[in-house]
Structure formats: structure tokens, C-alpha cells
Write a protein that binds this DNA or RNA. Structure first.
Lengths: 462, 462
DNA sequence: CGATTTGTACGTTCACATTTT
DNA sequence: AAAAATGTGAACGTACAAATC
């Protein structure tokens, strides 16, 4: 029996009943979308409970649920059982480089640049390659997974980081981000669920959103993700996969130690998850760590990006995977890219085979060390498991702020930093931090200046 | 009231009732998946009607529908209203190059290779570039959409094909296939529907499948897709987009004439569709054609691949789009690729700016002309709207065959060709054809030999 | 800590569109 | 051309789980 006395109920959003046409749930969804996109509903507004709306519109509860689901998938709203449904805070937290910021008016400590000091060496290598007589062989579109010679180099480079895998299980991709796209598209379906650290790489979050793959945050301690929590969530949720950056989690900078790696691997095996191990920062990790993939040989996908370590501009990445995924990934490569240019793969191969690669990473580690020392002049490192050579640091805030407001405020003081909300799957009232990039300032002096501004800025507002 | 007398009903698939646990629909889906993947159900087997299965299992009809939906999304089965549900024929019709086929034992007339005669010119260009003093500038990861200079070259190249668009509405991608991925991921959501020609590019079909985007085939005549049919389907279906290759539809080789382009554009505007215009073969089209995008300036995405026209190995593509899509596409590029290597874009830019590009396409057109003449010695061209310089031809079969069987049979005779079923969204009893690639045989002699084998082969089996 | 609020998941009913007979 | 077979999509009712008070 409908109760038609809701005219006085304080509903934050009242769709126009007259505008409801069949299918009702779609009507509701588009009215809601319209009102959000046109600013009639501001971010974080709490929408009426689904039951109230259903009563008010004189329709069934699940019809409202469905309508809300559409908007949630589009990222317009988010819902929390028990508390309600809310208009999403301004969408798009992915971190990306503006198209033209040649002359920045601020010190960059947001984006993590790769210390492109190596470009001179890369340029030399390119010059050397074009003199080779097989140059034309690099220009056709055979070998979608990469030329055997390039895959051998990839194998060699992986071994350097204790990842042992056969050439048949390696593919060349167009960079780390491209590897992630490839993995998500090839091995997962819309609606699948993947476990991630509470704070994780925002571009992975956004990529998953685009593909309608749901991320489930799992709490961690100072060693990284907690195996018991992962296990509990798996028992309740039917997850398909897990994404980890164990060599230096972005943004927390935690290195996962061997014990934790083994414990996580056990849970992965127990629940048949697909492990996506992003080892982009392995070149900053001390010797002696084995990848988690090592312990789940039947169900791993291992991405070794070279954008941070060797060359960001070449857009080449290495991907290794368990046998069972070979066919799907081959297919995926073909559908997404056809292939990665062999010319680019050749450049990286040459770097690896001539030893230039080693030179580049030791240079970068040197600079990273220096910049971390500078950081410690201003702020304490709170967790001893953080990677000492990390390209970024993770600083707890003592108060709560709004993401945009905080970042904007910092920018007005001349520094660009990222607030921890960007790294959350669901924006909630978790502890707040900022991620401070150490590698994007032009030099040590600029970094020092930036950190100084930051320190004062925090003192003033706290 | 359940009728429990189905023990004798000839059901092709009987799931074990005892194995059904809650959620029922998931149980059914996984049992079905298991039986298909393990070969207990062979391709094209007709499954019991959903109603029968529901009765047999003593559950509701829609529970079965939902279970089947899961398997359909995964590509394991397909359903046709009125006729039933069937186990999908062996999945994966996308056309792709085996990883190592250096020494083929057959004549290649399946894959469409790009006539890589241009590679010498490209190699020269690369050698020239590495001597430039701005080489290092090409190695960083600024300019996700492409450096301004490269986007200018893209604009110039688009103008060459009568596509007029501002530099702000152009991005550099990692090739045509990558552009398609980008468009589908950035502008569409899982579950969206896109109109395509009855016979269309198989890699687009498979890409859409991966992203769970539904393709709706629209009939055409000798001029290409029929505007009335498109209009009718839009009125019944709520489509979000349309994908067309008007300069030389793959596989039918039809050029859409100006009248048809305008009529299709009207329908696109009427129903607010997003037009995806794939102009990969524009370099083979006579002067005087305007892209369909020209007539839908608010809702087009225009992909100009250079893989077939200039260089397949560089993996560079150009993408233009209406204002409203700029933000989403920028985001998409960042999520999928971060960017395309500027080195590669520079090579293509140099080709365009020095006039080498013109030289390459006139060379290719010359060869295409010659090979089409050879083709006409063996087979008639049936439709006068087919592109006379097409890299492939479309030959009607007089009888019906099974895709795999036909192709395998041809292969045993020493020729590789593709059967029309690969180009269908839903495999049905449409008219059958084969697509014959003219550009992949090593030279004219080999092509002639291949066509000769084909002619005899068809005579023998028909 | 237990009751209440609120969102989620699943199975059901029914009207309808398309294909086949 | 009408009837039967068959899949699809919308809306509904109920049980449950998580968050809050």
C-alpha cells in the first residue's frame, strides 16, 4: 500500500514522477545522472534511502537498486550498506601528466617521474641500432609477442630480479600500464572482483573502473597486506584475482618481506586467485627477494615495466605468465595492440645486453639514495619496512582534509602533492596521508625547497 | 507444479541435480562451463530449452536464463530467440598472425599484409631522425596525446583524405587496433550496443566481445549498410554507437558512396549514435569522398591507421574526435598506454612531411592495381561498388560449408583463405563467401599460383 | 551489545519479441 | 497467416549482511 505523504519528508533528491517512463529503472538512472552532471546534486550529497525513494515513487525497492547500480557502475554515486548512497566526489583521481607543462609554476612532488637522466644513454643506443644491417627486420608486423631475441632479453632482465621463467611464457608489451590493461581485459570479465591493498595505484583503480571490474580493498599492516584478512574476504566474496606491488607498494613504499610473501602466496593458492604482480620497482629493492609469483607458479602474471627503471619514452614492458594464461594473453595482445614495435623492443634489448641497463639503474639508485636522505632531513620515516630507495614517500597527516581542497591549497603554496584519497578504492574516513614524489623535482635543491615549503605548510594548517 | 517425468525426455544436457547449491544460477553456469570446456558438450550442440531445463531442475525459468547469460557473456554459448541455445563453435575467429611462420608451407591469402615494400624508405627515415639534435626530446613521457608537431602532421595527413579537424581534436595512438580499444573502453560501457555491418572486421568483433559490448548486425545492399534498416533497429533497440569502414569495408570491399554516407549520417544524428569511422583504407579510395564524420561533427570518432598505408611495424595511429569526447579519450589513453612513443610518431611525421608518405602510397596503389588485375583473370567482380584497389576480394560461395572444415581443406591444398563466418557477429545461415587477400603472397607469381589452386579447389568441391 | 537502518543478492512472475512450424 | 516454441527484459518479494546508533 503506497503511502503518499512524502511531500514533507526531507528528501535530498526527488525525481519528477511524471518523467518516469518504462523502463522505470533506466528513467531513474538517467534523471539522476542528469542532476549530478548538471550540478543539481553536489558531490557527497546523501541520496534518499532506496526504500524511501521506492515508496515515494510507488515502485519496488529493487527497481531503485537497479537504477542506482547503473549510476554506480558509471562512477556517479557510491553506496555503503548501512549508511546510504552518496553522490561520488569529483570523479577521476588517476594521476596523469598534463599535456603541456613545460614551465610549471610549482614544484612537482605529485607525479613520479622516472629520473630521465638515462636518456643520453638511450639516445646513443638508438643511434647504434640504426646502423645495424637488420634494421628493416624490425619494421614488419610479425611476432606479436615479441621477437625471440627480445623475449630472451626480457628473460635475462627478469632473472636479474629473481624471476625465473621460460621464454615461451614471456611477451613484450607497450609498457607497464599497457600490461595491466592487457591482463585485466584478457583474464577477467566485467563484474569480477580483485583484491588490492587499501591504498593502491590509482591508475589501476581507474583502469578497473573503466572495465567494470570491482576492486576489494584488503587491510594491511607495516609488512603489507594481511594474509588473514585476504583469506577472510575470499571466503565471503568469491574473488578472481589479486593485484600487488610487493617491491615497493605505490603509494605506501612498503617492501613485502619474504615471510609475508609466502603467507600471501598460500592464500592465493588456497582460493585459486590470479596473482597480478607488478614488479615495476624491483630495481630499487635489495637483493634476496623472490617474487610472490615464484610461489604460485600455476596462477601468476608478472609485469616488469621498464618505464621507471630504464626508459619511460620507449613504451616497452615485459610480461610473464603461467602456462594456463598463454593463449588468452596472446589473444589479448592481438586485440589491444596487434604488437609492440620491434624497434622499441630492440632498443631495450640492446640496453640490457650491453650492460647499459645496469649502469642506468645504479645511477638511478644513487640519485634515489641522495634524495631520500634529503627527505629525512625534513620528515621521519615511520615504518622500517619502507623501501629506502623509494621514488616517493608516504607521510601521515594528523588531521582530516578534503582531497581537492588540500591539494589545491598546497598548489597555491607552490607544491604539487597527492592526497591519500586518490589511492583509495572507496573514499572513506581512513587515515589520511600524502604521497611525496622525490624524483620529479629538477634537482636536489628544488626538492629541498619543496620539502621546506611542505613542512611549513603542514605546520600552519595543523 | 513440477513434472518429474523428464528422465525420458531427450535432453542433450542434464546437469546433476545434487550438485546444485545456492546460488543456483551460478551452480548451473559453472556446471555448464565445466562440461563445455572439458568436451562433454561439443560445439554447436543444442542445449535443452530454458523452460525444459527449469522444469527438470524444478526451478524458475529466469534462473536458467541468468545462468545461461553468464556463459553467453563468456562466449561459451550463444542463444537465438525462437530457436534455442547452442554451444559456441570453437571460440576465437579473430585473425592473427602466428608468432613464427617464417617458412609457410602454403600461399597466404588469409591475412592481409600491408605490402611492406615501404620498409626501406622507413628505415632511411629512421636513420635520418637519429641524427637530429632533438632526439633526446623524443624519449621522455610528456605529451600523452602526442607532441604538437606530431599532431600537426596527423592533421595534415587527415586533410589529405578530406578529414578536416583541429589539432586539439587529434591524438596519436599505438596503431589502428589500439585506437579501437581506446574508443570502446573510453566511450562505451559493458552492455552497450553498437551497430555494425552484417559482415565486419573480426578483430573488432572479438574486441567488443572481450569488453562485453554487444554488436548488432545491420543488413546492407551493394552500397553498404541500409539506412532504413539502421533506423528500424535503432527504434527497437537503443543503440549507443555504430562502427563503419566506409572506404573499403572489411571484408566486403564496398566503398560507400556519398549519398549513402549522407543518409547514414542522418540516421546517426537522429538517434544520437557515436560514429566510429575506421578509415584505414582511405588511401585506396579515389578522390572526392568525404568521411561520414564530416556530416556528424558532434558525434564522430575517426580512426586513421597508418599500418596498412605507411608502416605496419611502427605501431602508430591517428585518432580524431568530436569535442565532447576529448576528455574521456585523454583519460583512456592514459589508462591504456600512458602514451605512444614519440620516437615512433616522429618517424611517421617525417614520412608525411618529406613526401615519402605520398611515394609509399602511390607505390602500394600500383601494386594493388596489378594484383587486382590478376584476380580478375580468375574471378569476376560481382559488385561495382567494390573498391578497385582493395587489398582483398570477397567471393561468393555457391554451397554451404563449415568454417573450420572449409579453411582446413583449403589449407591442405596449399592456400590460406578466410571463410565468411569469421566476419559474422552471430554465426547463422547467411550467404557464404571467402575473403581473399591479394597482398600477402610474396609476389604476383605466387598470387597467381594461389588463385589458380583456389579456382580448381572450388570447382572440385562445388 | 542488540535493535534499526540501509544496501545487496537471489529467485520469481509476467508480458513480449522473434523464429519456427 | 496463425500458432507454437523459445529467449529476453522489466519489475517484484524476500532473506540477508553490513553499518550505525
Amino acid at each position: 500500500m503506497p503511502v503518499n505523504s512524502f511531500e514533507n519528508y526531507p528528501m535530498t533528491w526527488k525525481p519528477d514522477k511524471k518523467q518516469l517512463a518504462s523502463p522505470i529503472y533506466r528513467s531513474i538512472a538517467s534523471l539522476l545522472e542528469y542532476d549530478i552532471l548538471n550540478g543539481y546534486l553536489s558531490p557527497n550529497t546523501k541520496l534518499p534511502p532506496q526504500r524511501e525513494l521506492a515508496d515515494y515513487l510507488d515502485i519496488n525497492l529493487s527497481t531503485v537498486t537497479r537504477a542506482f547500480k547503473i549510476c554506480e557502475v558509471k562512477g556517479l554515486i557510491y553506496a555503503v550498506t548501512g549508511s546510504g548512497t552518496f553522490v561520488a566526489p569529483n570523479v577521476g583521481n588517476a594521476i596523469f601528466m598534463a599535456d603541456s607543462e613545460e614551465n610549471k609554476s610549482f614544484i612537482e612532488m605529485g607525479i613520479i617521474e622516472p629520473l630521465d637522466c638515462s636518456n643520453a644513454l638511450v639516445a646513443e643506443t638508438i643511434k647504434r641500432i640504426v646502423t645495424k644491417n637488420y634494421l628493416e627486420k624490425l619494421l614488419d608486423y610479425r611476432h606479436p609477442l615479441g621477437m625471440p631475441y627480445h623475449r630472451m632479453a626480457a628473460k635475462k632482465w627478469m632473472e636479474r630480479f629473481n624471476m625465473d621463467v621460460s621464454v615461451e611464457n614471456i611477451a613484450i608489451t607497450s609498457g607497464g600500464q599497457n600490461s595491466l590493461t592487457l591482463i585485466l581485459m584478457s583474464l577477467f570479465n566485467p563484474g569480477d572482483k580483485i583484491a588490492v591493498d587499501t591504498y593502491t595505484y590509482p591508475n589501476f583503480i581507474e583502469l578497473a573502473n573503466m572495465l567494470n571490474i570491482h576492486l576489494v580493498p584488503v587491510e594491511g599492516d607495516t609488512f603489507g597486506m594481511l594474509p588473514e584478512r585476504l583469506d577472510a574476504i575470499c571466503r565471503a566474496n568469491h574473488l578472481q584475482g589479486i593485484y600487488l606491488i610487493p617491491s615497493c607498494n605505490n603509494p605506501t613504499a612498503i617492501i613485502m618481506d619474504m615471510n609475508r610473501r609466502k603467507d600471501i602466496a598460500k592464500v592465493i593458492n588456497k582460493h585459486n586467485l590470479i596473482l597480478m604482480e607488478d614488479d615495476i620497482f624491483s630495481f630499487l629493492t635489495p637483493q634476496g627477494y623472490l617474487p610472490i609469483s615464484h610461489f604460485v607458479p600455476e596462477r601468476f602474471v608478472y609485469s616488469l615495466s621498464i618505464s621507471k627503471s630504464l626508459s619511460s619514452g620507449m613504451r616497452v614492458g615485459f610480461l610473464a605468465y603461467a602456462n594456463q594464461f598463454a593463449e588468452k594473453i596472446t589473444h589479448g595482445i592481438f586485440n589491444i595492440n596487434i604488437k609492440t614495435s620491434s624497434l622499441n623492443a630492440e632498443v631495450i634489448t640492446e640496453l640490457i645486453n650491453t650492460g647499459s641497463a645496469e649502469k642506468i639503474i645504479s645511477q638511478k639508485k644513487e640519485i634515489a639514495k641522495e634524495r631520500n636522505l634529503i627527505y629525512q632531513k625534513y620528515f621521519l620515516k615511520e615504518n622500517s619496512n619502507e623501501n629506502p630507495l623509494s621514488f616517493f614517500r608516504w607521510l601521515p597527516l594528523r588531521q582530516k582534509y578534503q582531497l581537492k581542497q588540500f591539494e589545491q591549497n598546497a598548489l597555491e603554496h607552490g607544491i604539487h602533492v597527492y592526497h591519500s584519497h586518490r589511492f583509495l578504492v572507496k573514499k572513506d574516513k581512513s587515515d589520511q596521508f600524502i604521497r611525496i614524489s622525490l624524483t620529479s623535482a629538477k634537482d636536489s635543491d628544488e626538492l629541498e625547497k619543496g620539502l621546506c615549503i611542505l613542512k611549513n605548510f603542514l605546520l600552519n594548517i595543523e
